[in-house]
Design a protein around this nucleic acid. Structure first.
Lengths: 126, 126
DNA sequence: GCTTGACTTAGAGTTGACTCTAACTTGTAG
DNA sequence: CTACAAGTTAGAGTCAACTCTAAGTCAAGC
């Protein structure tokens, strides 16, 4: 079981942010008698997943929605299909971002090659 | 020469945002006698470039820096090398984003395949 | 027992990038 | 000439995601 400072170090995320994610309903550490947060491997793995989703600009609202569905799942009401749909939606999003990045990478590479070839005969634009 | 509403339509950006970019020092339309903005092809092309940089999360500060260098360039003080450095820095950034997106895309794809194979024997995690 | 450092909370503050409002002026079709 | 659509401004407001503050509690080593 990890303390918040251990989790902070392991994920390179400030303790402030980790508490903020908990307040936003993304994390559920257990607590010691005196109220100190304790994180297990499952929570650590999940936080790492969350950080990946965030790094690819999935809004906190949507991550919370995913968590809510997970927690709401039961034998009488299975939410795995809805969770799958959320993941698929974000996957589409990630692919769109990839396409934009690839196009922009090419554009910058071209621009850089213009700069590298630059001499007085070449008229500059922005 | 285009009006702001034409530029807005052509770039799918609100006129509000276009004026905001001007206030931030990214755009320099000419003006009619009465003060109405007019954009030429160069400005349109440059705005499209800016939008690409923004879509790949280049901060407005840095784009402004690039513009300032361009405008400051003269025969006695050439800034093209500094502009090249800015572009290269963003290129590194774009490549880092690409790497993160690719890793996350794989992670989501794996997660999705877990959901698709899901049956009562598989223990769910988040 | 005391100090020190890590933890706790509610809530305020910051940042970046828009996004909008209100009051006003200008261009153009009928 | 008039209506009205489209333009102008300074500055206020919004939003997401942190980021920090202050005041306090608790656990471990001397």
């Amino acid at each position: 079981m990890y303390t918040i400072s251990e989790i902070s170090r392991l994920t390179e995320t400030t303790a402030h942010t980790i508490r903020y994610y908990e307040k936003e309903g993304l994390l559920f550490p257990t607590r010691t008698k005196s109220g100190v947060r304790r994180y297990d491997e499952t929570q650590l793995t999940w936080l790492r997943f969350v950080l990946r989703l965030r790094a690819t600009h999935m809004p906190i609202d949507q991550i919370r929605e995913y968590v809510k569905l997970f927690l709401a799942s039961s034998e009488t009401h299975d939410t795995s299909l809805e969770r799958l749909r959320l993941l698929e939606a974000h996957q589409q999003n990630v692919r769109a971002q990839l396409a934009e990045l690839i196009r922009t990478e090419q554009m910058i590479t071209e621009k850089i090659s213009v700069y590298q070839q630059l001499h007085p005969l070449v008229k500059e634009t922005f």
